[in-house]
Nucleic acid binder design. Structure first.
Lengths: 237, 237
DNA sequence: CGTTAATTTGAAAATTTTCAACGTGCGTGG
DNA sequence: CCACGCACGTTGAAAATTTTCAAATTAACG
């Protein structure tokens, strides 16, 4: 088995625990999680498997479902008329995708699996129907969507070095919050995709990553990353 | 009267029509708009006046209300520990602010008026109460928040020139959608703020803007901008 | 193993940043 | 009323960073 695939499991060693998922509350109030324990992680919702490189959904497609990532990582991308893609964000287990569905009726970006991924699919009609019954579900939905509209700073800010460190620190932090190891993980992204996300060139990303490696701030081996002494640097350096 | 203030009126010549506001549906279903016509634009909701440079709300403050901009422009900013600010976005009449309120309970950024502004304030408890009565209001709220969670590309992408043109074209388009003149408007932002938003330096912004002026793509006079032949340039140039 | 894709590295070109100076408009106070 | 200071914008030139183009190296996969 190739080293990269193996390492990929560091980021998603198994299905995320439902309790760490952003959709948890909505699922529960909607009556979707019948049972889950440490031994048997079942979901009563529909599961959808996505092969690496395949799309969970595409821009403009009728949006009928909300998704939560159960396993694997996905990227949100815009593909412009010329065919080149712009990575908007990457998503880890526990993240919710397709939140724009309610307002737009169609998805607003492509969601592409970076590794073999498994997503929980919650049909919108189901949510609509359930929320007529449960006042609480409606409010949970509002809270979920509200959290999604927090004005964010884009990772593509500052010097190339700042962009890379900010990205890595952010990813590490997010993984930790989901119960994964934030100090040792695998980048599901190629240098090109990373460059795209950070709004720079793949050569620049490569150089910057290598430099951080030389400085022993991180330990990189292809896609696998180990955080050693990486600290955010707001202005200095 | 200084020229800049005068020109500022181009962007917000008067209160926006409620029908062009993102909050319109929610207001209506909540029973807030008793009457509005071309002659008398009244709102039954509470109005809040914000002086230029003053804050509508601050990061971390308890979030009790949702706001819609009625007149004037505001910026969302993050202020870091060092005290320097990062402009996240600018908002024009009809935009809704404070959507993160439901999920977080506190505001996630500072909202600062760029000009004297008037905002409609809708208390969250009111919305909560009303939505227990109206199924429709709850759904409208979900749709509003859903539209706010569309994955966006940041304006600070590509070359300095692309950033400036993208920003101007986007702003023009948004103004048009709200019923204002997108071909002639006033930048509520200083060069510094613009540089901050576009993730570059004020000198670079100044040079780029002047260059577009020389090329007759736009006609700039301080803060007032007239779009002449500005077109988006995805890759070339 | 050999072939192909991905990554790393080098060096010149281009862009952006930095540092500094200059100009303008506006309010203040002589 | 006018000089002055101040904030803001513009402009210039050197320094720094990033991009580009090219080649070399490494990893992936049949």
């Amino acid at each position: 088995m190739p080293a990269r695939q193996l390492a990929a499991n560091c980021a998603a060693p198994g299905p995320i625990a439902c309790r760490s998922c952003d959709l948890n509350e909505v699922c529960r109030l909607g009556g979707l999680i019948a049972f889950e324990n440490a031994r048997t992680r079942h979901s009563t919702g529909a599961l959808r498997t996505v092969a690496a490189g395949a799309a969970l959904f595409r821009t403009g497609a009728p949006a009928n479902s909300l998704f939560a990532i159960r396993q694997g990582m996905l990227k949100s991308v815009h593909v412009n008329a010329n065919g080149d893609e712009r990575v908007l964000a990457i998503h880890i287990p526990g993240d919710v995708l397709g939140q724009e569905a309610f307002g737009l009726g169609t998805y607003a970006s492509d969601a592409i699996a970076l590794q073999p991924a498994v997503c929980c699919e919650v049909p919108l009609p189901f949510l609509g129907h359930q929320s007529t019954r449960s006042q609480e579900l409606g409010m949970a939905l509002v809270r979920l969507l509200s959290r999604g509209s927090v004005p964010q700073r884009h990772p593509g800010r500052g010097s190339a070095r700042e962009r890379v460190t900010t990205f890595l620190l952010d990813l590490a932090q997010r993984l930790e919050r989901r119960g994964f190891d934030g100090r040792r993980f695998t980048l599901g992204l190629s240098r090109q995709e990373l460059a795209d996300l950070l709004d720079t060139r793949l050569e620049t990303v490569s150089r910057t990553v290598q430099r951080l490696h030389r400085e022993r701030a991180i330990c990189v081996n292809g896609a696998s990353v180990q955080m050693l002494s990486l600290a955010s640097e707001p202005d200095s350096a």
